[in-house]
Design a protein around this nucleic acid. Structure first.
Lengths: 109, 109
DNA sequence: ATTATACGACACCATATGGTGTCGTGTCAA
DNA sequence: TTGACACGACACCATATGGTGTCGTATAAT
C-alpha cells in the first residue's frame, strides 16, 4: 500500500495553534527550511522541529534534506478526514446544507 | 452579546477520541443524561464528566439539570470553525473543488 | 424514614506535552 | 582549513492531561 498509516491522529496534530500556524505558513510556499520557519516563531528551533515531527507523524508534512538544511512542505490530504468529519455535523447547524451534503457524499464514496 | 466567548479552543476540544465519540452519541439524541453516556464507555463517570466539561467550555455541549440527573445536548455550531478551516486547505488536495469553495465563501460572509 | 441513585467537587497519580539548553556532526563559505 | 551554520539527538523540566477513588448532597424510589 502506498498510503502510510499515520502514527499520530490528525485531530491531535491540528489541535495545537503553533502547528496550525506551521500548516498555514507551509501552504504559502512550496518548501521552507526549518530555520526559516523558526524565525517566524518566538520559540527555539528544537521546539519548532518537534512540532514539525508531530505533523510528519500525522502525514501532514513531508521533509527533504537539501545540503545542510531540512526543507518541509505541506501535504494537506490527511485534512480530508477533518473536513468530512465536520461536514457530517453541518446538518446540525444549517438545515439548508443539502447541496453541500450531496457534494460530500459524492466525494466520500 | 448572546454568544459566549469559549474558554477552550474548539480544535483542542475535538482532539480527544472520547470527546468525538461523545459528540457522535449526542448527535443521535436530543438529550442524554451523564449516567447513560457513561454506560457507553469503559471509564468512570468522573472521567466522562470531565470530558463533557471540556466540550462545554468549547461551547460544543449544553447541559441542563433535570431532577437528580444532568442532561447534555449537542451544540454543533462551533464546529463551523473546523469546517471552514479544513475547507480552506481543500484546494491543496483537490483542484476540482471550485464548486465547494464557492459554497464556503458564500457561507463565511 | 430509609435506601439507592446521580452528580459535583476534590484529592490524587502516571504519563504526555511543550518548551528549554547542550553536544556532535555534516555542510557551506571565506 | 578554518569557522559559521543547520540540524538531529538527547537530557531535562514545569505543567497539562486523562484517568482513578472518595465524600457530601440533592433527588427519587420503596
Amino acid at each position: 500500500m502506498s498510503e502510510n498509516n499515520p502514527l499520530r491522529d490528525v485531530f491531535d496534530a491540528i489541535a495545537d495553534p503553533t502547528r496550525r500556524r506551521l500548516i498555514r505558513l507551509l501552504s504559502e510556499a512550496e518548501e521552507i527550511p526549518l530555520h526559516d520557519l523558526t524565525e517566524r516563531f518566538s520559540m527555539g528551533r528544537t521546539a519548532v522541529s518537534k512540532h514539525l515531527n508531530i505533523l510528519k507523524e500525522a502525514g501532514l508534512v513531508l521533509d527533504r534534506k537539501a545540503g545542510r538544511e531540512t526543507r518541509y512542505r505541506l501535504n494537506a490530504a490527511p485534512l480530508r478526514e477533518i473536513l468530512a468529519w465536520a461536514a457530517f455535523y453541518s446538518k446540525f447547524w444549517d438545515t439548508n446544507m443539502s447541496r453541500l451534503n450531496q457534494l460530500f457524499e459524492e466525494e466520500e464514496e
